[in-house]
């Protein structure tokens, strides 16, 4: 029988997410995926940025690193290079990973370093009170678009695929079991794995835009027109392995 508490830091409960927030569903899917793969908590490092989703690292009993806004992929790159034997999972949000940290996302994808990145897309800056995100749909309202959003938004998966990511997937918090499988697949994939998770923010985003109850917002995700599941998978040299080749060359072993 799977027990989530085996992976939680009970002293950190209750968590800080709002009632109805979709983030807990992702957290649970992630823990089930880890359990399914039989990974040791000691050998997992979770690295996050700043925002609601990034608070996740505080709740998981493994080696956790809550970094600066937008930078978790950069910190994770250093950590993975230092310790390739660790399974490094990066938790980021749509603001953290696509706006302030967008540059790191495209270059981490390009390098194809063996990290698994979960990008929680809730279409808004929740932690700071509901400002516009690069994923906020056009015409919706936020505290910084009081007359409606006029900016087109990002398709994170197409971005990462174009940049060279070798595992690109999208899941939703409406389908928790497929999400768990996607995460497990992403962790198993050798190279940069990117999983965009469409999640919900009923409290800050939903209320302002009259998107319905938390349950209705979840149901709306079922009807997303975006492709879900594994969108792109390819193989290519993984960065830390390629660097081992550089070491061999520099030491005259090849």
């Amino acid at each position: 029988m799977f027990d989530y508490h085996e992976y939680f830091r009970s002293e950190m409960m209750p968590h800080m997410w709002c009632k109805g927030c979709g983030n807990g569903i992702v957290l649970k899917a992630l823990l089930r995926a880890i359990h399914r793969l039989g990974l040791s908590k000691d050998r997992i490092a979770m690295v996050s940025g700043i925002g609601c989703s990034s608070r996740l690292t505080g709740y998981v009993d493994c080696n956790t690193l809550h970094t600066t806004h937008g930078r978790p992929l950069a910190f994770a790159t250093g950590l993975k290079l230092a310790r390739p034997e660790l399974t490094v999972i990066v938790i980021t949000g749509d603001g953290d990973g696509l706006a302030i940290g967008g540059n790191h996302l495209i270059h981490t994808a390009r390098r194809n370093i063996d990290l698994t990145c979960l990008l929680f897309n809730n279409q808004i800056y929740g932690m700071t009170g509901g400002q516009l995100a690069p994923t906020t749909p056009e015409a919706l309202f936020s505290t910084t678009t009081p007359y409606g959003n006029i900016e087109p938004n990002f398709d994170a998966c197409r971005l990462v695929q174009a940049a060279g990511g070798t595992f690109v997937a999208r899941g939703t918090v409406y389908r928790a079991i497929p999400l768990e499988k996607l995460i497990a697949e992403g962790i198993q994939h050798k190279g940069f794995s990117f999983i965009e998770v469409l999640t919900t923010c009923p409290e800050i985003h939903g209320r302002r835009n009259k998107l319905g109850t938390p349950a209705e917002m979840l149901q709306a995700l079922a009807k997303t027109t975006l492709p879900t599941g594994v969108i792109h998978q390819a193989s290519g040299p993984e960065y830390t392995e390629a660097y081992d080749g550089i070491i061999a060359k520099a030491q005259g072993r090849t």
Binding site: T67, A74, F75, A76, T77, G78, L81, A82, L86, H107
Partner: peptide, 14 residues
Amino acid sequence: IGAMGACIGASLGG
């Protein structure tokens, strides 16, 4: 910025 971040990550790796 990323360079500084990577340094910190590697240092935490020991």
